[in-house]
């Protein structure tokens, strides 16, 4: 058996946690698009942002570089790609379970969307059922569409009274 100080680069990159939702790894969140090792030993990691202005992207880049350096890779190149755009459908089942366990309501799965035609405007808040991650009640209300991070909305449970975050579907 060949012994090596190098942990597999993909394993090292996938274990990095999200700076704003640390219950999730970048792999759970679905923002890690690729980990490749080039002929010269450079590890090229490709990331995609959740939102265009995601302020955590630079921290992710730093954390990835540190994790790979610690795993023995000296040459690391972290690139960002916008295409195809990230969707909450990319959050893994494991990630959804971890969100709920941490008190954050996971997003619904949106599935494929129509490719053409104007985006319809809904004038009344969508009647999406979001269960309270604390007590499980479905009688919850949206208090703000925009939350403390770009990915989350704020909700409140009418049954147990607890406020909670919801990873909003995009």
């Amino acid at each position: 058996m060949v012994t090596s100080a190098l942990t597999d680069a993909r394993t090292a990159a996938e274990s990095v946690v999200d700076p704003e939702m640390p219950m999730l790894t970048l792999a759970d969140l679905g923002v890690l698009r690729g980990v490749e090792t080039g002929a010269d030993g450079t590890v090229v990691v490709t990331l995609t942002p959740t939102y265009s202005g995601c302020p955590a992207l630079d921290e992710m880049r730093h954390d990835l570089r540190c994790a790979l350096t610690d795993a023995g890779y000296d040459k690391v190149d972290v690139r960002t790609t916008f295409s195809p755009p990230w969707s909450t459908d990319w959050i893994s089942d494991d990630g959804r379970r971890k969100l709920a366990e941490a008190g954050v309501a996971p997003p619904d799965r949106l599935g494929p969307r129509p490719a053409s035609g104007p985006v319809p405007l809904t004038l009344h808040a969508p009647s999406r059922v979001v269960a309270c991650p604390q007590c499980g009640a479905v009688d919850t209300e949206e208090t703000s569409r925009f939350g403390p991070t770009a990915c989350t909305a704020l909700r409140r449970c009418r049954s147990c009274g607890e406020p909670f975050e919801h990873v909003k579907e995009i």
Binding site: P49, S52, F82, P85, V119, L123, R145, F146, I170
Partner: peptide, 23 residues
């Protein structure tokens, strides 16, 4: 490809902005 990629990402964001304002 850059314009297409930025647009593909922004469409979802702008849909939320428009909904917020309309409401």
């Amino acid at each position: 490809p850059v314009l297409a990629a930025v647009a593909g990402k922004a469409v979802k964001e702008l849909t939320y902005h428009r909904d917020y304002a309309a409401q």
